[in-house]
Design a protein around this nucleic acid. Structure first.
Length: 773
DNA sequence: GAGCACTGC
C-alpha cells in the first residue's frame, strides 16, 4: 500500500496514472472545480454540464496536478484575485474581495515566496510565527494552493490543541476562501465531524488526529500535516511528533509536515526533526513594558491586590488582568478588591472598578461577563471606570480578552505533577516558566501598548524560572498513552523517539498497569482486550471495566457510570447554600458509596419528571446540567463503540437483590489497583500495595465504615484523600484479580494478613461446597 | 468536613 501511494502521487505523474480517488468511488468527482483535468473526466469542461459552472475559470495561471509543488506566489495570487474561485468554480463574492485585502496585510504574507520555496524543497519545515502573524489561518491556505491535495484524493490537516480553536479557525478560513464550512474547508472534533467528500482542508484537534492514526498508522488520508501550537506540547502533539517522525520516512514522496510554533524555542523542534529548515515570521502586537519588584514578595496574594489597587489609583484608563492559581484564591481576591475599591471611591473619588472572576468551572454565562464593557464614570466628567479580571491560566492560552492594558503576574500557577512511585497525579502550585511569563505579558498588548507588573525580581525571571513549562508527557500517568502507542504500532517504547522521553519508571508503571489489566501480555504485546480497550476514548481501567461488564450482567449501568466518571463533577455546591446542596445530594445517596450514588443521579436525571424541564430540575437538585448532558453525549459515543465491537448491553433487573452488587463487582474488575483498607477501627485507610495512609474525602456519601473500598481518585491537598469511593468485599479482589492479588508478592502486614484470612475462608467454603456434592 | 490549573479522545 505504501509503495502504491508513493508511485501514484509523485509530482508531475501523468494524470492517466492517477489512482482512483475517494470521491470518484462514490460516483462524485473531485474534479468539480476549476483545477485541471481533461474534458473527459472534468465536468466543468463538459459542454453539457456548463450550466453547473456558470463562471468556469478562464485563463490566467490554471493549476493542475502537473504544477503540484511548483506553484509561485505570483501565479497563485492571480488565481486568488479571481474572478472565480479555483476550488469551486463559482464567482468570488464581494465579501471575499474585502477579506483578501486584509489577509494580504498580515505579516506572513510578506514571506509567502520564502515559505513556498522551503515548503516545496523540503519534507519537513519548522515555522515560527508570533501572535498576530496570521500563521494559523494563512499557512494552511498557502499549502492548499500548492499541494492541491484534492487532485490525489487527499487532504491537508491542521491540528489545534483545543476544540474551540479548531472550530473557529475553520469557520474563519471557510469565509476567507469563500466556501461553505463543511465543504472544501471543515473541522473535526470529538462529537462533531464537519467535513464532507469535498473537504480538502481540515482543522482538527490534535487528539482527533491521534485517534485517526490509531486506525491508519500512516495517516494516508493526508498529503500535508500541519501541527499548530506545537510549543504547547500537549500529550497528543508530542505523540504525533514521534509518530510523524517515523511516518515521513515511510512516505518520503507524498507526505509533508509543518511544525508551527509561537516561541523562539524552535531550534529544539528543528533538531528533533533532523535539522529541518526554519522559517520565522514576526508577529504584530503592541509593545508591553515590563516592571519587576525590586525585592522578592513574601505574600504574592497580598502583593497582587496591592498592585491592582495601585494601577487603579494612578494609571490611565485600561483594563486589568490578574493571574491567580485557583477558584478559591480568585473568589477571595475578588471580594477583597471590591471592598477596597468601595473605600477608594468613597475616600479618594476613584473611578468605578468592576471585578470579574474567571476559571474553567465557572458556568459559561458567568465566563461571558468578562467581555462586558468597563463601567462608565460614577459621575459626569468623573474618573473613568475599568474592569479587572482575576483569572486562572485559562486566560493565558484558551481565552483572549481584548482591551487588557495591564497584566499583573504573580508568577504562579497550578500544575499537574505525577509521582510514578505512588501512582498519583496531583495539582501543585508551582512557579511558571519564562515562556509562560512572556505569554502572560503579551496579553497586555493586544489592542494597544500595555504594561506588565511581575511580582518577582528580574533576577528571578532570568535565573530561576525554567525556560519552558515541562511538557505534559513528563507530568502525567502514561497508561493511556502507552496503550495508544501500542495501537499505533510502536512496539519498542524504549527506543521510540520522543522529543522529551518520560522517566523510565513512569513507562514501567504504565506497562505494569496495562499488564495487570490484561491489555498487554507478559511480552508487552497488545492483547485482544487491549485492542478493544484502545478503541474507547477512556482510561484503560475504565475501558476494561466497561468491556468486561457483560460478565456481571450490568453493562448498561457500567456504560452510564463510565460516562459519568469521565466528565467533571455532577454536584454543585455554592458557598452560600452548602447545607441545601448537601441535603439534595443525600436524596440520591446510596449507602454503599459514591459510584452508586452517581448512577442514582443519572437515572433520576433521565426520569420523565426531570426530563420535563431538565435545566430547572438540575438547578433545584444542585446538579450540574452541563456535566449531565455532557455525560449523556459521552454515553452515546461509548455506546456506539460497544455496538461496533459487539459488546452486549444488559442489566440485572432492578428488583434483583444483586443489582447493586453486580455493579460493585464490575467496578472491582477495572479498579482493583485502587483499593484501600481501613486501618483498625479508625478513620484512616491504607492503600493496597502502595501503602499510602489516606482519609476518605469528606464529600463521600459512604454510609458505613466499610473495611475495604475502591477509590476513583487520590487527591493530594491539605491531606491525602481518596475521593469517589465504594464499599467492596475482599473476596472479590482475590476472585476477580488473582494476578494482582497474588499474596506471595505482598509485603507482610495487616493487609496481607487480612487477605490471607479471606483466602482461607474462601478455600474452606469451597471445600465445604465440594464436600456437599 | 473539603476544593477542581487547563486541555483532549
Amino acid at each position: 500500500m505504501a509503495n502504491r501511494e508513493r508511485e501514484d502521487s509523485d509530482d508531475g505523474n501523468p494524470r492517466a496514472k492517477r489512482p482512483k480517488i475517494e470521491g470518484e468511488a462514490n460516483g462524485k468527482t473531485r474534479a468539480q472545480n476549476g483545477f485541471g483535468g481533461d474534458a473527459a473526466n472534468d465536468p466543468s469542461k463538459n459542454p453539457y454540464l456548463q450550466h453547473r459552472y456558470p463562471q468556469a475559470t478562464g485563463g490566467g495561471g490554471r493549476l493542475d496536478n502537473s504544477m503540484r509543488h511548483k506553484t509561485t506566489t505570483k501565479a497563485t495570487e492571480a488565481l486568488e484575485n479571481g474572478p472565480n474561485n479555483p476550488f469551486t468554480g463559482s464567482k468570488f463574492s464581494q465579501r471575499y474581495m474585502g477579506i483578501l485585502q486584509t489577509r494580504r496585510d498580515l505579516p506572513v504574507h510578506a514571506q509567502r515566496d520564502q515559505f513556498l520555496d522551503k515548503y516545496q524543497k523540503n519534507q519537513i519545515l519548522v515555522f515560527v510565527g508570533e501572535t498576530g502573524s496570521g500563521k494559523t489561518t494563512q499557512i494552511p491556505q498557502f499549502v492548499l494552493y500548492d499541494d492541491l491535495p484534492h487532485l490525489n484524493g487527499k487532504m491537508v490537516a491542521c491540528t489545534q490543541p483545543r476544540r474551540v480553536a479548531a472550530m473557529s479557525v475553520a469557520q474563519r478560513v471557510a469565509q476567507e476562501m469563500d466556501v461553505t464550512l463543511g465543504e472544501e474547508v471543515g473541522y473535526s472534533i470529538r462529537f462533531e465531524d464537519k467535513t464532507g467528500p469535498n473537504t480538502m482542508l481540515k482543522y482538527m484537534t490534535d487528539g482527533m488526529l491521534l485517534r485517526e492514526a490509531m486506525s491508519d498508522n500512516n495517516l494516508s488520508r493526508y498529503s500535508t500535516i500541519i501541527l499548530d501550537e506545537a510549543h504547547e506540547r500537549t500529550l497528543a502533539t508530542d505523540i504525533l511528533m514521534g509518530l510523524l517522525k517515523e511516518v515521513v520516512l515511510r512516505r518520503p514522496n507524498d507526505l509533508k509536515l509543518i511544525i508551527m510554533s509561537a516561541t523562539l524555542d524552535a531550534n529544539k523542534f528543528q533538531k528533533y526533526f533532523h535539522n529541518a529548515p526554519l522559517l520565522a515570521v514576526p508577529g504584530r502586537t503592541h509593545p508591553v513594558e515590563i516592571f519587576y519588584t525590586p525585592e522578592p514578595e513574601r505574600d504574592y496574594v497580598e502583593a497582587a491586590l496591592r498592585t491592582v489597587l495601585q494601577i487603579h489609583a494612578i494609571e490611565p484608563a485600561g483594563d486589568i488582568l490578574l493571574f491567580m492559581t485557583g477558584e478559591e484564591e480568585i473568589e477571595d481576591a475578588c471580594r477583597k478588591i471590591r471592598l477596597e475599591v468601595e473605600e477608594m471611591v468613597r475616600e479618594s473619588d476613584a473611578g468605578p472598578l468592576t471585578v470579574y472572576p474567571l476559571y474553567g468551572s465557572l458556568p459559561p454565562q458567568q465566563q461571558q461577563k468578562i467581555f462586558d464593557p468597563a463601567p462608565p464614570p460614577n459621575s459626569h466628567g468623573g474618573r473613568p471606570g475599568r474592569k479587572c479580571i482575576i483569572s486562572t491560566n485559562i486566560a493565558e492560552t484558551s481565552l483572549t480578552i481584548d482591551g487588557i492594558v495591564y497584566v499583573v503576574d504573580p508568577g504562579f500557577s497550578k500544575q499537574k505533577v505525577y509521582n510514578p512511585r505512588i501512582r498519583v497525579e496531583s495539582l501543585l502550585v508551582s512557579p511558571i516558566s519564562a515562556a509562560s511569563a512572556q505569554q502572560r505579558a503579551g496579553r497586555a498588548g493586544r489592542t494597544r501598548p500595555g504594561k506588565c507588573f511581575r511580582l518577582y525580581t528580574e533576577k528571578a525571571f532570568k535565573e530561576e524560572l525554567i525556560p519552558q513549562t515541562y511538557p505534559e508527557i513528563l507530568r502525567s500517568n502514561l497508561s493511556s498513552t502507552v496503550l495508544e502507542l501500542k495501537k499505533l504500532g510502536i512496539d519498542d517504547l524504549v527506543h521510540f523517539d520522543l522529543m522529551d522521553p518520560p522517566a523510565p519508571e513512569t513507562l514501567m508503571r504504565a506497562l505494569e498497569e496495562l499488564n495487570y489489566l490484561a491489555c498487554l501480555d507478559d511480552e508487552g504485546d497488545l492483547t485482544q482486550l487491549g485492542r478493544l480497550a484502545s478503541d474507547f476514548p477512556l482510561d484503560p481501567a475504565l475501558a476494561v471495566m466497561l468491556i468486561v461488564a457483560p460478565d456481571f450482567y450490568c453493562s448498561n449501568e457500567m456504560l452510564s457510570l463510565t460516562a459519568l466518571l469521565s466528565v467533571p463533577t455532577l454536584f454543585v455546591r455554592p458557598a452560600a447554600q452548602r447545607k441545601r446542596a448537601d441535603d439534595m445530594k443525600n436524596l440520591f445517596a446510596h449507602t454503599d458509596g459514591d459510584h452508586l450514588t452517581m448512577l442514582n443521579v443519572y437515572h433520576a436525571f433521565k426520569s420523565d419528571e426531570a426530563q420535563a424541564n431538565p435545566k430547572q430540575w438540575c438547578h433545584d437538585h444542585f446538579l450540574s446540567h452541563r456535566a449531565l448532558t455532557q455525560a449523556d453525549n459521552v454515553r452515546m459515543q461509548l455506546k456506539r463503540i460497544m455496538e461496533k465491537n459487539e459488546i452486549e448491553l444488559m442489566s440485572t433487573p432492578f428488583e434483583d437483590k444483586r443489582y447493586y452488587e453486580n455493579i460493585r463487582r464490575a467496578l472491582v474488575a477495572g479498579f482493583f489497583m485502587q483499593v484501600a483498607k481501613r486501618d483498625g477501627n479508625g478513620k484512616t485507610y491504607m492503600t493496597v500495595k502502595d501503602h499510602q495512609s489516606v482519609l476518605l474525602h469528606p464529600s463521600t456519601v459512604l454510609g458505613h465504615d466499610s473495611e475495604w473500598v475502591i477509590y476513583q481518585e487520590f487527591v493530594l491537598t491539605s491531606k491525602n484523600y481518596i475521593r469517589t469511593v465504594t464499599a467492596i468485599k475482599p473476596e472479590w479482589l482475590l476472585e476477580l484479580a488473582p494476578t494482582y492479588f497474588d499474596l506471595s508478592t505482598f509485603k507482610d502486614g495487616e493487609i496481607k494478613r487480612s487477605l490471607l484470612r479471606t483466602a482461607n475462608k474462601l478455600k474452606s467454603k469451597e471445600f465445604a461446597t465440594k464436600g456437599r456434592k
